[in-house]
């Protein structure tokens, strides 16, 4: 008799923990159901049009540049840092590479231009990381200065757009491929997915990635446990610079040239996408694949609004509201999560 009640109560327990775990899993990956619902919402309002292959393709295509810049922001946030300069790094490095190919060293192959873009991005990122870790400069102030310096720097380099870039330079961001399943599809879309998967694997499967999460979770503990915190911080900013520059390259291909405002408007969307993807502002928590969900959600909503003939000026307001809702949501989820955990 008593063994029977014991058994049934332990089965109940099991079911309870399973349910708790499932809820936790859902809460950690909330962005995907939200994205799904938004997509259904616009599909219902815009039957046939919104789910049209060309629309989805365009939606993905416009997400590529932002996706890379979101990754740049995301890894900084995971490491417990902050980067306000991702947008201006994207713009400045893209402009440098474009000017290099057209004016400083015309006739050089496009790949060299790509190397210039990435090199400039990595170097600016290195400066950020170096001053933050070695001189203890506050990340907010450091990257704010970088933002201002290089946003101005773009105009110093060129106040006009640079077009007529070599095909190899704009291939990643501008070319389309014909695949049997995906009729014509921009290379940038495949590249974006690959980039997210690669960064995800780097962060979750390697020793260095684990160190980034550790530093983001508790810098002091990570140091005491023997992690070289300065090295991690500098590397994070270098990779962030590289990713931001990659975003600049993708945007250049998308636009067909480097414009002086390219990238600079991407900071807030990138930040928003990372946060609504569930990456914690306090570091140590978050999944970059979910940040991709955030990017796609922003893309879905702005595409939907534009197609509903809602003026593009509204889009930013809506993005702001989304960010605010996300922050509220995650605050509540955070509290609820603690309650669930104490039951585990």
């Amino acid at each position: 008799m008593s063994t029977l009640t014991n058994l049934s109560s332990s089965v109940e327990d099991l079911r309870d923990t399973d349910r708790t775990r499932m809820l936790l899993f859902l809460m950690d990956n909330l962005i995907w159901p939200i994205l799904f619902v938004s997509f259904l919402f616009f599909s219902a309002l815009l039957p046939e049009i919104f789910t049209d292959y060309r629309n989805i393709r365009f939606l993905l295509y416009t997400s590529a540049g932002l996706g890379a810049i979101t990754l740049a922001e995301g890894i900084c946030l995971i490491s417990g840092h902050f980067d306000l300069s991702v947008g201006s790094i994207a713009g400045f490095s893209a402009m440098s590479g474009s000017l290099f190919l057209t004016q400083w060293a015309p006739g050089t192959p496009g790949v060299v231009g790509i190397a210039v873009v990435l090199g400039v991005g990595a170097f600016i990122g290195f400066l950020n990381g170096f001053f933050i870790s070695k001189f203890g400069v506050n990340p907010f102030l450091q990257t704010l200065s970088t933002l201002i310096i290089f946003e101005g720097g773009i105009l110093v380099l060129s106040s006009t757009s640079i077009f007529n870039l070599p095909g190899t330079f704009t291939y990643l961001g501008g070319a389309t491929v014909d695949l049997p399943l995906f009729k014509p599809m921009p290379v940038a879309v495949f590249f974006m997915f690959a980039l997210f998967v690669a960064v995800f694997a780097w962060l979750t499967k390697t020793r260095f990635g684990r160190a980034i999460y550790a530093v983001g979770g508790d810098k002091e503990a990570a140091g005491e446990a023997g992690i070289n915190v300065d090295k991690v911080v500098i590397s994070v900013y270098v990779v962030s610079g590289l990713l931001a520059a990659t975003g600049g390259l993708l945007l250049t291909g998308f636009t067909g040239g480097a414009t002086p405002t390219l990238g600079t408007a991407q900071l807030f969307p990138a930040f928003t996408a990372a946060v609504i993807g569930g990456i914690s502002l306090f570091g140590g928590r978050g999944n970059v694949l979910n940040a991709l969900g955030g990017v796609l959600l922003l893309g879905t909503i702005s595409a939907g609004l534009v197609m509903l003939n809602v003026g593009p000026q509204i889009v930013q307001t809506v993005n702001g509201v989304i960010l605010f809702s996300a922050i509220l949501l995650y605050t509540f989820v955070g509290r609820y999560r603690e309650r669930l955990l104490s039951d585990l």
Partner: peptide
């Protein structure tokens, strides 16, 4: 080998990750 007064554990990481923090086997 050291046990710090503040323990020096990273809350977000798993037990195993913490145990091998800074020298995770690959």
């Amino acid at each position: 080998g050291t046990v710090y007064q503040d323990l020096a554990l990273v809350d977000e990481l798993s037990v195993a990750s913490n145990l091998f923090l800074g020298r995770n086997p690959i």
